[in-house]
Structures are given as C-alpha cells and as structure tokens.
Design a protein around this nucleic acid. Sequence first.
RNA 1: CGGGGCGUAGUGUAGUGGUAGCACGAGUCUUUUGGGAAGAUUUAGCCCGAGUUCGACUCUCGGCGCCCCGACCA
Length: 415
Amino acid sequence: MRQSKLFGQTLRENPKDETSVNARLLERGGFVYKNSAGVYSYLPLGWRVLGKIAGIIRKEMNAIGGQEMFMPALVEKKYLDATGRWDVPVGFEVKGKNEKTADFVLGWTHEEVLTAIAKRYISSYKDLPFGAYQIQTKFRNEPRAKSGLLRGREFMMKDLYSFHSSEEDFKNYYAIVKEAYFKIFEQCGLKSFYTVAAGGNFTSSNTHEFQVLSQVGEDKILLCLKCEYAENKEISKLGDGDKCPKCGGKIKIENAIEVGNIFPLGEKYSSAFNLQFIDSRGKKENVVMGSYGIGLGRVIGTAVEVYHDDQGIIWPKNIAPFQIHLIELSAKDNLAVKKQAEKIYEIFADKGVEILYDDRADKTAGEKFADADLIGIPLRIVISAKTLENNSIELKKRNKKAVKLIKISDVESII
RNA sequence: CGGGGCGUAGUGUAGUGGUAGCACGAGUCUUUUGGGAAGAUUUAGCCCGAGUUCGACUCUCGGCGCCCCGACCA
C-alpha cells in the first residue's frame, strides 16, 4: 500500500473530545473516526487491524469445531419475548418508518435467535454437540459509552454458541473454548487472566471472563500472583492481600479490561424454546448450551492501551495493519533513492508481504518518522541517500531504539 | 440516569452586543529533505431553535451533541 494513496491521514494533535489513550492514538493515527459517542467507523488502517484479529479468532474457532455463520442484526420481538429479555434496557428498539412492521431490536446478543434456528435441525443425540459462531456488529444502548473503543454502543463481536447432550459434554467443551481463548489473546499479544464472574442478563450461573491488566480497565479483579487464579470483584469475597483459596499465594487487586467471556447457559434457552433431543434410550431431554464472546474492537483498544509510548502505537506483530513500513527520504535531485525504494517496495509486495510504503513526496523526514511512530508498524525500513552510500537500508523495530543497516542485496532475508 | 466540564474552519485554539482572527492541515507554485522545513498564494468556521435587542457568535431560555466522575454494563 502506498501511503500517498491511503484513505485517512494522521492528525498532529489530540482530538479535544477524547481523553483515553486508545481513542486518541487510534484517531490520530487514522485508524478510526468517531461518528457518535461509542460509535466508530474503521478507516482502512483500523479495518486491517480488525481483520487480523478476526482472522486469529476464526482460526482458533474453526480449530475447535466452530462453524462460522451469520445471523440478522434485526431481531424480532418474539425471540426475546420467549426468554423475557425484550424489556432488557440495553436494546435499541427499531421500527420501520412506515409503522407497519413488527417490533425489532438491534441484536445485542443472539442466544434466542440461534436457539430458534437450532430447533429445526436438532432432534437426536446424534445431532449434538455442535458449535456455531459469527463475527457481527452488536448494538447495546450503553448508558455511558466511554474510553474510546473499550465501551461502545456499536461494536464488532465474535459470538460462539455451543449445544450439548449433557452437562458433562458441555463442561468438556467449555474447557476447550477456554484454551482457545487463551491462544487467541496470546496471539493478539495480550496476557489474559481467567476470572470467575457474574452472569448479568445472560445466565444466573457464574461465568468466566478473560481480563487483561490495565490501569484504565473498568473492572477490578482479585488476582493470585502465584497461580493466576482470579475473581471479579463484583462477586468476590476476597480482598487485597488475602490468601489465594487455591494455592495460598498472595491476592492482589488489579484493574483490568474484560476482553472476552464464556457463559454456561445450562438449559435456560433450550427450555424457553423447547429445544430438545432424543437420547440413545429414546428419552426427550433439554439441550445444554454455552455462549462465548469476544469484543474485537475492545481487543484493539486494549492492545493500544497496553502497547504504546509517547510517540504512538506499538502494534503486536500479529495484529499490526502492516508488517513493514518502508520510508524513502529522497531529494528531488537524487532519483536514485526513490528508484531503489520503489524496487524494494515491489520486491516485498510481490512476495505478499504486508508493506506500507511512505512514498509521499511532500513530507519531510521528521514528519515521516513521526507518522511511522504513531501508526506503529513493527518494522521500519528507511532508505535514503545516506543508506544508499553504503548500498544499505536501515532497519528499526518500533519497540526498540537501535537501528541496523543491512545490505540491499540481503533485503529478502527480512522476509 | 445523577453530578461536573465543554460546543468557533478538517484539527487545535483566540475573540468583541455591530456576523470573526491565529496556527496546523488541505490545494497550487518555488526552494527544501535523517525527527513534525521556508516563502508566495488559495481554501474553509461561530451546534440547533426560540427569546431579548435596531442588531446575537456573544445575553436568556430550551434542545441536541461530546468528554469525565458515579450508577450500570461485553
């Protein structure tokens, strides 16, 4: 991608209406545009990051047998009436302009919708278990959107739902999803802690959250420093400095961002919809369910909160919008630099390396460096008259200070 | 939903009861080019509505919007 053609542009100053680090850096870097409080557009750079995260999630969901599908954002009243959740205030109610349509809510979760669908296809224990997921925009009427991408009213979410013939089978799968979640967050560069929590509008059981430590996190968790056992403060009877109930280690209270959660749903939804199967002895039983969410925008916001410095974002490799940021510092009277940069750009582009090429002719070196720091691509390559004298290019990692020269002839070794 | 703050070009900011400047950005031209360059030139704005007034961006009231704290919550 040539930066001269990139839609979206860096801002030199912080937007005055944002104070959170993730919102400031993401807006300044040209990743997102705020349309309304808690409602963001993803510009091409931000969309690439979101795509990276979606890719990691897909890979891990598919690996545990999840099947991707796509459900409507318009959810008719009858679905939520079945579980009494129509009146939950998080919904945005929508009506057709012509006033003749049924009542709808913009989907804020899809347990009911998928349970209704599953009813048609599940009849025997042989149809179980199965898991289906989607990556889709969710709408929640937050009383107070805040902290940039960390709490929006509209956000991309991966929601997986699993269906089982027994509590035992469900529990096995729950543990498998748990491991998949750890892998997902790890690949996103985030260290997550598995935390016991409450179920809110979804279930009366305890649920589990994946929390990433951050000062700006709105959750407080009680975390064992030794075995990493953690409880959300909202349900915990532990206090700062207590002994861990699992290993006796020291408990510490920490702020954290909830990037994912997994819910045992039991038979709440299957009984509401009469979703039953016939077991191997011919007996009808309720399906046992679970649901599992990850907020993709929140993962982006969290990554920025965790990985940044005064100059900008420092993307973890796997979710960076590009892998290489190539900068050419050419002078008008020295076409050699420009030519060489074009050549190197083509080499990487041909090999499918994700490369952003700062080919802007009217920007100074300082401005290009500042933009590169802000955008936060992991590896910066500079080619200039100075490097060319040595038949070299300069490499610098975004998370390191040191620069290193390598010969142009060795450029492919970077791949 | 309670409390606080704030709404002026794309961004960040001045400002007066007589309708607005500055910087950056963006466009054009020239000179520049290793950490946010220089000159010339162009571009673009008072959140909305009502009221007071000869006249409102300014004062009053009412909306709406944005941020923060709290409550709530992925």
